[in-house]
C-alpha cells in the first residue's frame, strides 16, 4: 500500500502540486489521469523519488519514503517494478535474458537455474514463453510490452509503476496489455500505479482512478463512477472525444 499525504511541490512561483492526499491499495490498479500540464507527471516523479516534495510525504507500507536515506530508499526500490514507456528492452539480449537481467542484478543468492526458472515462469505468465530465445527486434510491439511486464515482475515487486503502458499499441493489443497488468496486480497482490491518457484503460482496469487538475486531486473513484461524476472538469476530460459525447 502507498499512502500520499499533503504532497506539495512547486518550482519557483509555480505551485505544481498543491497538497495531494490519496491511498493506493494493494491488489488494485490505480490510474493517474489528467490533462497535460495538470501535474500528474510531477506527482508520479514524487512517488518514485525522482523529485523531492516541498512538504508532505509518500508512505510505502507506512514507511515515509521522503524521509529515508539513500540506503533505505534502495531497499524500497528493490520492491519496485518499472514498466517503461516504449518497453526499454536491451536489444542485444534475448527475451529470456532481458527478464533474467534484474534477477542477476538484485539476486546474488539465486542460482542460474533458479533465475531461469523464475524468468520462464514470468514469461509463461505473460504468454510469451515460446519467444524466450528471440531478440527484441524479432518480436512485435505487443510482445515487447509483455516481455517488459515479465521483466517488471521478475523480482516479485510489491509496487509496480507503469508509464503509458499501452502507448504505441493498437487498441486491441492495448486492451490485452491492460488486462494482463490488471490480472497480475490481483494475482500477485501488487500495488500498481499507472500514468495514462487512455480512457480505454481507465474503463477496462481502473479499480481506483485519480484525476489531477491544476495541481489538485480533483476527483477520485472507480471507473464505474467516472462516467457519472457530474464534475465538469472530469467530464470535459472523459468526454473530450466527439464519439464518446455521441455515445453518452
Amino acid at each position: 500500500m502507498i499512502e500520499v499525504k499533503e504532497l506539495k511541490k512547486s518550482f519557483g512561483e509555480l505551485n505544481v502540486l498543491k497538497g495531494i492526499n490519496t491511498t493506493f491499495e494493494v491488489g488494485k490498479t490505480n490510474l493517474i489521469i489528467g490533462q497535460s500540464g495538470s501535474g500528474k507527471t510531477v506527482f508520479m516523479k514524487c512517488l518514485v523519488g525522482l523529485l523531492e516534495p516541498d512538504s508532505g510525504g509518500v508512505f510505502f507500507d507506512k514507511n515515509n519514503f521522503t524521509l529515508m536515506n539513500e540506503k533505505q530508499r534502495t531497499k524500497v526500490r528493490k520492491k519496485m517494478g518499472m514498466l517503461f514507456q516504449g518497453s526499454a528492452l536491451f536489444d542485444s539480449l534475448t527475451v529470456e535474458e532481458n527478464v533474467v537481467f534484474p534477477l542477476e542484478m538484485f539476486n546474488k543468492d539465486m542460482t542460474r537455474k533458479e533465475k531461469l526458472e523464475r524468468a520462464h515462469f514470468c514469461l509463461d505468465r505473460v504468454n510469451i514463453l515460446d519467444a524466450n530465445h528471440l531478440y527484441p527486434a524479432e518480436i512485435s510491439g505487443g510482445m515487447k510490452k509483455r516481455v517488459a511486464i515479465a521483466r517488471a515482475i521478475a523480482n516479485k515487486p510489491d509496487y509496480l509503476f507503469c508509464d503509458e503502458p499501452n502507448s504505441g499499441l493498437d487498441p486491441q493489443t492495448a486492451i490485452v496489455i491492460d488486462r494482463l497488468i490488471s490480472e497480475i496486480t490481483k494475482e500477485f497482490r501488487i500495488t500498481t500505479i499507472i500514468n495514462t491518457h487512455d480512457m480505454n484503460s481507465v474503463m477496462e482496469i481502473g479499480d481506483h482512478v485519480i484525476f489531477i487538475y491544476k495541481g489538485n486531486l480533483w476527483w477520485e473513484g472507480s471507473s464505474d463512477e467516472i462516467l457519472t461524476t457530474g464534475n465538469k472538469e472530469v467530464e470535459d476530460f472523459v468526454y473530450a472525444s466527439e464519439l464518446v459525447r455521441k455515445l453518452k
Partner: peptide
C-alpha cells in the same frame, strides 16, 4: 542517479 531511467521515461 538510479532514477534517471524514470526521468527519461516519464
Amino acid at each position: 542517479d538510479p532514477v534517471e531511467a524514470i526521468r527519461t521515461g516519464l
